[in-house]
């Protein structure tokens, strides 16, 4: 019994200290997750912690792994003193318009990026893209939405569209494996730097991410 009381006391002490430290930290200046750029609160209660005196907020626990793996990469997204970011500009300067998280866990412990790609309603999306009206498709939030994640998808669609409409994907084959797009059932699709990209299966998304330039060559002249 004594031991239990001691443990409780120590735990209480530890949490008070933590709070005290956190409250002394620099406040987090963004309204989105520093890893996924997703609006905080969409995936539930944000994950808050202090990293070297800087308060950090993440949309979910999964992003913590990514952050811990390379804090410097994400800390670079923080604006320098006095420069508050505009909330409608992604903190990330360029790259995948599909980075998200909080979906199914990939085997390697990282994020299952493929799970974030829009599928299911792909045909509708493709139709929209070809007539150039699916502005939301080029937005990070829209791509992050799972088809059944209505709340999430709607939130993204209501954001004002700033980007140019994504270019339609010109091939019938996967940009990574060269296989037919429908050979593994539902294909995965996402927008990379304004270009719609389609792959045959989830593992090809991760492969694309490692070296987009290499695979984008396949679209040259198409």
């Amino acid at each position: 019994m004594k031991n239990t009381m001691l443990v409780i006391l120590l735990a209480a002490l530890a949490s008070i200290t933590a709070v005290a430290v956190e409250s002394a930290a620099k406040p987090y200046p963004l309204d989105k997750c520093i890893v996924s750029d997703e609006k905080l609160g969409v995936e539930g209660k944000p994950v808050v912690f202090v990293h070297e005196g800087q308060e950090i907020k993440l949309c979910c626990q999964d992003c913590r792994k990514d952050f811990d793996a390379n804090p410097a990469k994400y800390l670079a997204k923080l604006p320098k003193a006095g420069n508050a970011p505009k909330s409608d500009e992604p903190a990330k300067p360029k790259g995948m318009a599909m980075k998200s998280c909080c979906m199914a866990d990939a085997k390697d412990g990282g994020h299952d990026h493929a799970a974030m790609v829009a599928k299911g309603d792909d045909k509708a999306k493709e139709a929209k893209q070809t007539d150039g009206h699916d502005h939301a498709a080029a937005k990070p939030g829209a791509e992050a939405a799972k088809p059944h994640d209505h709340e999430h998808a709607d939130a993204a669609k209501t954001e004002p569209a700033k980007d140019a409409p994504a270019k339609p994907y010109p091939l019938k084959t996967c940009i990574v494996s060269d296989n037919d797009l429908d050979s593994m059932g539902e294909q995965a699709s996402f927008v990379y730097q304004g270009q719609t990209i389609k792959v045959c299966c989830k593992p090809c998304v991760a492969k694309f991410e490692k070296n987009p330039a290499k695979y984008l060559k396949k679209l040259e002249g198409k």
């Binding site: 085997k107 990574v176 494996s177 299966c201 989830k202 593992p203 090809c204 991760a206 492969k207 490692k210």
Partner: peptide, 17 residues
Amino acid sequence: YGMAAYLTSILDQIDPE
């Protein structure tokens, strides 16, 4: 059950980093 992992391993070997 590791179909995705297997496909990843094949992709990484066909087109190695």
